[in-house]
């Protein structure tokens, strides 16, 4: 009896085991089939999924390249055409306590007078920015500016008061500075060799060369307070003024007398004794302007 029961149970188990083996795969086998890409490769190909993966790769590369380019552009330095107006204003700002341009003053009408003066000489579409200073340390100057942008002119109020200048005389003084600016004298004297690699460059991965900017600022100080312009440069400017003003003898006369005024001021006023060092010299200019005596 016992033997029969064991035999029957054994048959039952063997039949059930046989059924399980036939019906189910293991989870592992099923997963392995899913990971077997070779089996579904043809399906993917026919669905163009491989192609879209390639397209996406190219797009991602392009986005990455643009992002890197954008990050690099953040460190771009201004070029020669964009730098000078900015740096001249930077110098003015850094020297604000010395230059004293933030002061209350009346409207002298210089802007309108200079505008009419330029138009009278046939110089059109020329923008300018005149900054009045409340210091005798600087008489007048044209700071470097970007090509085809406003010319930056600085003018001392104590200087024009000491000379008691009229609007025409002030315009003549500013026009001389304008011509110096167009000739590029200040820029060429202030130029440092290291600027060549600096302007228009990119400093990603490095620190900004602030020492270079400090050097350039010192050059500005040297030219404006100490060295000024050379005799040859002054001669060239006087010659240009003579040529441009000769058609209007009243204006030419005013210019001649202005130089006389400046010469007198420089000789008697201690505050302006350095003027001839910066703009040599009013007396010489009058000699250059005087018509030559010729014996016929």
């Amino acid at each position: 009896m016992k033997t029969l029961i064991i035999f029957l149970v054994g048959c039952l188990f063997s039949s059930s085991i046989y059924c399980v083996e036939e019906v189910s795969e293991t989870l592992l086998e099923r997963n392995q089939q899913l990971l077997d890409f070779q089996a579904i490769r043809d399906v993917l190909k026919s669905d163009s999924l491989e192609q879209s993966v390639e397209t996406q790769k190219v797009e991602v590369q392009s986005v990455k390249k643009n992002r890197e380019q954008g990050n690099k552009m953040l460190f771009q330095l201004p070029s020669d055409r964009e730098f000078w107006s900015f740096f001249s204003e930077y110098w003015l700002v850094k020297n604000a306590p010395v230059l004293k341009y933030d002061f209350i003053k009346p409207d002298y009408g210089i802007k309108e007078a200079f505008k009419i003066f330029l138009e009278g000489l046939g110089i059109y579409n020329q923008g300018f920015r005149i900054l009045l200073l409340n210091t005798p340390a600087i008489s007048h100057f044209a700071l470097p500016s970007n090509p085809n942008e406003d010319v930056i002119l600085i003018l001392s109020v104590p200087f024009i008061r000491a000379l008691d200048l009229s609007k025409t005389e002030i315009s003549l003084l500013l026009f001389e500075d304008y011509l110096r600016s167009k000739q590029g004298y200040f820029k060429s004297m202030a130029y440092i060799p290291e600027l060549e690699g600096f302007l228009g460059g990119n400093y990603q991965g490095k620190t900004l060369d602030r020492e270079l900017l400090a050097k350039l600022s010192k050059k500005y100080d040297e030219i404006i307070y100490d060295k000024g312009f050379q005799f040859q440069q002054q001669f060239e400017i006087t010659r240009q003024m003579d040529t441009r003003l000769k058609p209007d003898l009243n204006l030419w006369n005013t210019y001649f007398l202005l130089n006389q005024k400046i010469d007198n001021l420089v000789k008697r006023n201690v505050l302006y004794q350095k003027y001839n060092q910066i703009y040599p010299s009013a007396e010489l200019k009058m000699n250059w302007l005087k018509p030559k005596n010729s014996v016929l």
Binding site: E89, L92, V93, A96, Y101, D102, I110, K111, E112, F114, K115, L118, E119, I123, Y124, N125, Q126, G127, F128, R129, I130, L131, L132, D150
Partner: peptide, 17 residues
């Protein structure tokens, strides 16, 4: 001071007749 610079500038431009 940079802002004050622009307050104090006398800005103009010569025009064509």
């Amino acid at each position: 001071y940079w802002g004050r610079l622009y307050d104090h500038y006398e800005m103009g431009k010569s025009e064509q007749p």
